[in-house]
Design a protein around this nucleic acid. Structure first.
Lengths: 90, 90
DNA sequence: CTCCGGTGCTACGATAATCGAAGCATACTG
DNA sequence: CAGTATGCTTCGATTATCGTAGCACCGGAG
């Protein structure tokens, strides 16, 4: 899975996750990721744009059609993660 | 998502992925990840065991029930990743 | 025009994560 | 005993990430 290479880097999935709603500006995205370094954010955005998962538009950075598809697969993952977190220290 | 913290570390998802089939020994797992450092592998295994996603048994390291649940969510992800990879350089 | 606040992004030294190879301790086999 | 396999540790080198500062640009206000 080449996808795991891309996603298995710090902040990558987090960035996708933060873009699940409205488009965000560079600085907005940085704030949403609670202070991630701009150098890394820029690097991730470049990778994600090259992978056609994110695109830069008028309103800022947003998920592409592919990106939205991918994120929709995160939905079940998120629901599962909540149960799992509860069962861990619950 | 606390899960993203765990998965957003190098090799974490790869390790889970390589354990999708039979249990693997430490060195087998290292080889399956094509030469990942044993120090990091050991660290990841510790994290995954603490997260109750992987457990060490007789036959080596294997997914726990939770781990198998999580990996089953990777199935659609994998199918999607193949289409996506094809559409990228296809 | 200048100034101000916003933008996307870069530079760079400091810190943390990862690598790669070697080796240790143990157990089993012959 | 030697040989082979195991899980795992150590340590110096390399790479990734951090954190802060700052650049270049743009639009609006004065």
């Amino acid at each position: 899975m080449a996808l795991l290479d891309l996603l298995g880097r710090r902040w990558t999935m987090r960035v996708l996750w933060e873009l699940r709603g409205e488009p965000l500006s560079f600085r907005g995205l940085q704030a949403a990721c609670s202070g991630m370094s701009p150098s890394v954010l820029n690097q991730r955005l470049a990778e994600l744009r090259e992978a056609r998962l994110v695109e830069a538009g008028e309103a800022g950075y947003a998920l592409s059609a592919h990106g939205r598809e991918l994120l929709s697969l995160f939905g079940p993952l998120n629901r599962w993660a909540e149960d799992w977190a509860r069962s861990l220290h619950g």
